[in-house]
Design a protein around this nucleic acid. Structure first.
Lengths: 109, 109
DNA sequence: CTTACTATCTTGTATTACAAGATATAGTTG
DNA sequence: CAACTATATCTTGTAATACAAGATAGTAAG
């Protein structure tokens, strides 16, 4: 994944980081992202994304009973996912410094 | 434009910022972005993007003779473009803090 | 005239973010 | 029990995006 590709893939990285903290299911993830200050991601974004990541073997899932509602699909990182997360962090830092150096002249606005 | 939409539109904001510094043409812009640490953006990314921004009236363009090669199309910001830039900066700061707070637990990796 | 460099634009493709809505389970209330 | 509410996942379809690849064109040098 190149730096430019990541422009589209920032959510992916954030989701990997959140899953890394502790295993989590989609619905809970959506709430958590909102807490972190993101505009709420709809399920139409999150579920396909999680399924894509599972297909890429970045995460695995297990079903567990819910107190209310259908079974929850808990996701956790594979070692490939952990590796991807570390690479995402590097790329994010790079992107951040690139964008910030572009914006340097605009700071006081 | 929502926070999530901007995930895809970070380049747009960076380009607005660069054009704001001084008027610039596409080819020069591509080189500049590379200097700033971005993976080189191909012309297939930059030219359609500039044309889109002109269509949205964020930038205007004027043709000027080149020392070598065809005429250069110099772009500069409209007041709408300046406004959009200021909004981009706000959204970028927000995104930055959101992502960084998600990554807080991962810092030392 | 061919090569090389500068410069812009077009076409086509894969991916992405997302809205909208379908589906399913369990608890609550009338 | 029927209706409603909340929880939870998945599907479908769409618009926008990033990009590779290549077409086009002007100028200068050999």
């Amino acid at each position: 994944m190149s730096t430019t590709q990541m422009l589209k893939g920032i959510i992916d990285g954030c989701i990997l980081a959140i899953i890394h903290e502790k295993e989590i299911y989609g619905y809970e993830l959506a709430e958590k992202l909102e807490q972190y200050g993101f505009d709420s991601f709809s399920e139409g974004t999150i579920y396909p994304l999680l399924m894509r990541m599972q297909k890429e073997e970045l995460v695995t899932s297990t079903l567990k009973k819910s107190t209310a509602g259908p079974k929850r699909k808990y996701y956790s990182l594979t070692s490939k996912g952990e590796q991807e997360l570390r690479q995402f962090i590097k790329r994010w830092k790079l992107l951040q410094s690139s964008v910030n150096s572009v914006l340097k002249g605009e700071e006081n606005e």
